[in-house]
Write a protein that binds this DNA or RNA. Structure first.
Lengths: 339, 339
DNA sequence: TGAGGTTGAGAGAGCGCTCTCTTGCAAGTT
DNA sequence: AACTTGCAAGAGAGCGCTCTCTCAACCTCA
């Protein structure tokens, strides 16, 4: 438990391995980097020496010598980080970290202060970072345009204003349409929606999907109320929907958290789910299985999204041709609130 | 939007700044590192040159030359990362990142694969990292003992088996005791608890706090049921509590998520909160304000915890004397479920 | 005025790697 | 036998910094 390691022996270097194996530094470097043109006998001897001294390459030296950074930054705008009470953030990070674990890139994280954005920008442009991932509620923020001229960047979610940036997203519109179609197929004819904010791409896309499905079946699409993706806003929207006094037997909610809010109001009024009103949510987060009856919802594969973002970023860094927009497939999880 | 920057001019170096300012590289280095013994006129000229070429120090070179890493790693065991549906993880990261933003350390994140722990260990011991923070459900996992002999480490939460490691935590026991005392002061005399798992320190400490408060007032402490911190386990525990058929007018729940589960059962049975049963939770997470009536709960300052962890780690790295255990103060947030 | 002291800037040797270039050697060619 | 080829290993020059050492310039005081 000696936390003081001031006097600890320094980490073994390439040089030491070379000396032990009786070869040159260059040869050890070749072995470490899997350069094929090394005699197998020699390579074996080197590998043994590496194990013997427990050698690990020094990343700083490597980065310096090769003239390229070996880390990738995940940026979370400060305002966004405050809102992350949902598992979205943790899951994206998880996906990203899992993918990068198998590469030579290290993941670092930055909370981008809105007060001094130059600080983050300087960090990114200082040549210390090979690329960046942005997880933001205001995806595609124009403020990153300048940065993305210099280093590869990949965004989580479709930017509100498409600007040629690389991003990965789920097909919110198609998924919402599918969810609504389930309601229609279940025989529901008065289908409302609690939509998300219309200044966020998922908010816009999900309501459009709902509308598409209704139009395709010639159903009424006037039963719309808006929330802000929070539980309480979902409850309020549900109340407003009910106060309209119109018939209502199906409900598509733009995320599970608002659906949980809607549930409380429905329960209050003694409206049965799914008997009186069938409900479909979106995201398949912890709320979906927390509520009773369990929520039928669209599964949003966030970890996969993180993985894909990392994959695309690495491809970009290494100059591989890559599609600018990537859609991750969703699936409808049928539980008890609609089927 | 040119993602291809292969031909972009290289980042400015110390050398370039020195040339522009007409001084030596060493002098620029002094200015950058705030060494006092530099003539103010010259320093001003250098600063101007730095601005002119938009110079940012190369972290790899710095780390190499100074022979010390400039990054700190946040480790999340794979098994833990899967469970992080709660905002705990995101908040700790946020706190850590916020603190480090004002230091010269960069935060990097690793998901420690349980399958190949040597990989993480090699990374940490390879001399590439100045220190590490561990956020785990099984805090104080003995597997880190070897690592902490070599680099400073700080854990989130008290390890189950105290082993001399540095950690920061809230005083779970005292906080739980205070929460229970509120119930007693409110005149409740039959106070139950839904406790957490007894193989996790918060689970143990919180039930102990509850018991302490009851004993101090000579009340019965037999009304205990256990959950695993999930919503559904809270509901089940509540059900078991009610099935005992004993009088019950107060309830302390070891976290808000289980409290939310208990709520659903209480509502089902028509038991009024707080009129029939007053409820106090723990954590003050999003569940506390999602439920109706809003939950009186212990505020768990997770962001502060992250900040403190980072602060202690940096102190450790820089050799400053530091307390081994740090308790972050909690506060009781009085809402509607008990007062 | 000159010895000794102080202060501030420059010189230059690395830090641990990568990578190009060169060298040495065995095999193939005439 | 003298030559060219081909290929694997070594030499050595950096990468952009830090930091110690050295030295010039200026002070101070007898």
């Amino acid at each position: 438990m000696k936390q003081d390691q001031s006097g600890s022996r320094p980490a073994p270097t390439l040089e030491m391995v070379a000396a032990l194996a009786g070869v040159s530094r260059a040869t050890v470097s070749r072995v470490v980097n899997d350069v094929p043109s090394v005699d197998e006998d020699i390579a074996a001897k080197v590998r043994q020496a590496i194990l013997a001294v427990n050698y690990t390459p020094n990343r700083a030296a490597r980065s310096l010598a090769s003239r390229k950074p070996n880390s990738v930054t995940l940026i979370v705008p400060e305002s966004t980080s405050k809102v992350f009470a949902d598992p979205f953030f943790a899951s994206v990070v998880q996906g990203v970290a899992l993918y990068l674990a198998d590469t030579d890139y290290t993941l670092n994280m930055v909370i981008a202060s809105e007060a001094k954005p130059e600080k983050t920008r300087a960090f990114l442009l200082g040549g210390n970072v090979a690329g960046a991932l942005v997880v933001s509620h205001h995806a595609g923020d124009r403020s990153w345009a300048h940065v993305s001229d210099h280093i590869p960047m990949v965004f989580a979610g479709r930017p509100l204003a498409e600007g040629g940036s690389y991003y990965v997203d789920v097909n919110n519109e198609a998924a919402a349409e599918g969810a609504t179609r389930l309601l229609i197929q279940g025989g529901r004819t008065h289908i409302a929606t609690i939509a998300g904010p219309q200044d966020m791409p998922p908010g816009v896309d999900r309501i459009n999907g709902w509308r598409n499905a209704l139009e395709a079946s010639g159903l009424d699409d006037s039963l719309v109320e808006y929330g802000d993706f929070t539980l309480s806003s979902g409850a309020k929207a549900m109340r407003r929907l009910l106060e309209r006094g119109k018939p209502l037997d199906g409900l598509f909610v733009a995320n599970d958290q608002m659906a949980a809010g809607a549930y409380t109001v429905l329960h209050e009024r003694g409206i049965r789910i799914p008997d009186d009103v069938a409900v479909v949510g979106f995201d398949d987060d912890s709320f979906a299985t927390s509520v009773n009856p369990q929520l039928t919802t669209v599964h949003h594969p966030i970890i996969d999204m993180g993985k894909k973002m990392a994959e695309i970023l690495v491809d970009l860094i290494e100059g591989k041709p890559t599609d600018r927009v990537t859609q991750i497939p969703t699936s409808l999880v049928i539980r008890d609130s609609a089927s």
